[in-house]
Simulated assay, not measured.
Amino acid sequence: MASTPPTGPPFTYEDVGATREDLCPPGFHRLHVRTRIGEGEAVFRRASEAVLTWEMHRAVGVGIATAADRVAPDVEVTVRIGPVRAPCRVVWTAEEPRRTGWAYGTLPGHPECGEESFVVDRTGDGTVWLTVTAFSRPAKWYARAGGPATRGLQNAYAHRCGTVLRRICAELED
């Protein structure tokens, strides 16, 4: 059964959904940051809820503008960091017994071009992890001018997501 394409603006890159398989298309910079959040089912459930409801993102300190209380495919969201506005659309979601997460892709007006995913998983030993994976390249002049500093900020943001999520879940550790 074919899915209905989104009615909003087109994505600014071709490999929509590539983060689901942890793929990085040629010509993009890859980001992969994995942070240990804690242990146990309660931590997994709490971390999953924080990721699926934008709570983690808001706790990181970025502005989140969306009409949706929860992530879902085709939901549009604008991330705001200071004066920078970054429009995105959710590409995919996953809610499985040991893996929860989602990814969004860039829309016209975003300073970067690419996709970023936020996945919480619980390994066989009960450890809960947040993995932030992305592929991107500059789309605006100021992102290009930032060069390695822009990638450094992306890396710091991914690490901050893990730190904040660990703090959100800290009281639930088994």
Rank of each mutant, 00 (worst) to 15 (best):
V43T: 09
E14M: 08
Q154K: 12
P83L: 13
G146P: 00
L23S: 15
R122N: 00
N155I: 05
E96I: 06
A143N: 06
R99K: 14
T12E: 14
A94Q: 11
M1Y: 08
R137A: 10
T131E: 01
G82S: 13
A145R: 12
V60K: 07
T127A: 15
I81T: 12
S136P: 00
G40S: 11
L165G: 06
S3E: 15
G147M: 12
G146Y: 09
V51D: 07
N155R: 15
V16Y: 08
V91M: 08
V79N: 11
V164S: 09
P6R: 04
L31H: 03
R36L: 04
Y13V: 04
V164F: 01
V51G: 05
P148K: 14
D121S: 12
P148M: 00
E49T: 13
T131F: 02
A86M: 13
G8L: 09
S3C: 11
T12R: 08
R80D: 06
R58P: 09
P5F: 05
G63S: 03
R20C: 10
R137D: 15
E171S: 10
C161S: 07
V91I: 11
P111L: 09
N155C: 04
R36G: 07
P97V: 01
M56A: 14
A134S: 05
E39T: 14
R137V: 14
D174Q: 09
V120T: 03
A47L: 00
R122C: 02
L107P: 12
Y13C: 12
T78Y: 04
E55G: 00
C24F: 10
R34C: 10
Y142R: 04
T123R: 10
H57V: 05
A94D: 07
A68R: 15
T127W: 04
H32G: 06
V132Q: 00
E76G: 02
V120S: 03
D125P: 06
T53N: 13
R122H: 02
P108Y: 01
R45K: 14
R36W: 08
C113L: 09
E95T: 02
T106K: 03
L153M: 11
L172M: 11
P73G: 12
R122Y: 03
R70T: 12
V75N: 00
Y157P: 00
T7R: 15
P26Y: 07
A68L: 12
C24W: 03
E171F: 08
F135H: 05
